[in-house]
Design a protein around this nucleic acid. Structure first.
Length: 270
DNA sequence: CCCTGAACCTGACCGC
DNA sequence: TGCGGTCAGGTTCAGG
């Protein structure tokens, strides 16, 4: 589920239901996530959440004297649900508010995380070394070009490194490379400044488009309102290996880079 | 420092 | 119907 557009869609969906609310209680049914949930999270009880922000794919719930960090991993989701909604499989954590609602974290694979920190959140070890936000001005082709010099990794792996830029996961790395007509296997350090300018613009375009759409989703994504989600209708290459390229009709090539599915057009991309 | 591959975990799907 | 293998949207970490 969660690439950056899905996380941003989640943030926008839940923020109005969470901001200004006081956390009345927590229900932790399964605390064994990517990292175990610590006892210190109990400090959140009684605190007011002033804002829901996002850094990369982390959601930041800014509380009175600390921050709740939530990462959705591969299969996590957050929904606002009525207090009496029956618990389902993989509903690991509930954040209960004073009204008739609660925030429910569900994550079948448990690669997600729920962390409490009293440090300034951006100084948290998991956040402090993250690269720029792709949709903010400090991200640019110039940044990609400078950082990539001397690097021999495939440009696709380079893009997916959160120390380079946050929020570009496997789906949108494939899509942005197709749009910019760059071969995913090309060595990051051998790509010109001009091409990185194009690539940076394509990354932004692809992410913005997906956010506008409410997030591209696979299978049974359920959004924060509990309504059925969207499907991967507008993807050009991801999930389309062997099917015709939308530009030239050549069957798309599917390979694995760093063990991740990679789809591209061997004629359009070079 | 750079890069690769393994690890974390469940569920869906495919071939036999 | 069952079983084993493979794959899935992410990220960190160990090891060469």
């Amino acid at each position: 589920m969660p690439e950056l557009p899905e996380v941003e869609t989640t943030r926008r969906g839940i923020a109005p239901h969470v901001e200004g609310k006081i956390v009345q209680s927590l229900t932790i049914r399964q605390g064994n996530l990517r990292w175990p949930i610590t006892e210190s999270i109990q400090q959140l009880i009684g605190q007011r959440i002033s804002a829901v922000e996002r850094r990369g794919k982390y959601l930041l719930f800014i509380a009175t004297s600390g921050t709740l960090l939530v990462h959705l991993g591969m299969s996590g989701s957050l929904r606002i649900v009525p207090k009496d909604l029956p618990v389902e499989k993989h509903d690991h954590v509930d954040f209960v508010f004073g009204d008739q609602r609660l925030l429910r974290f569900n994550d079948p694979r448990r690669f997600g995380s729920v962390l409490w920190t009293t440090d300034p959140p951006l100084q948290h070890p998991l956040l402090k070394d993250l690269g720029p936000e792709p949709l903010l001005p400090d991200f640019s082709g110039h940044w990609l070009f400078e950082l990539s010099r001397g690097k021999t990794v495939p440009v696709k792996s380079f893009l997916m490194d959160s120390h380079v830029v946050v929020g570009v996961g496997n789906i949108y790395a494939n899509e942005a490379l197709f749009k910019s007509r760059i071969l995913p296997t090309r060595q990051a350090g051998k790509i010109s400044w001009q091409r990185y300018q194009v690539l940076a613009e394509c990354i932004q375009a692809v992410l913005k488009e997906a956010i506008d759409q409410g997030g591209t989703t696979l299978r049974n994504f359920v959004n924060e309102s509990g309504k059925p989600g969207y499907f991967k209708q507008q993807l050009e290459v991801y999930g389309r290996g062997g099917l015709g390229c939308n530009r030239c009709r050549t069957p798309l090539t599917e390979i694995r880079i760093a063990n991740r599915s990679t789809v591209y057009c061997r004629f359009c991309q070079h």
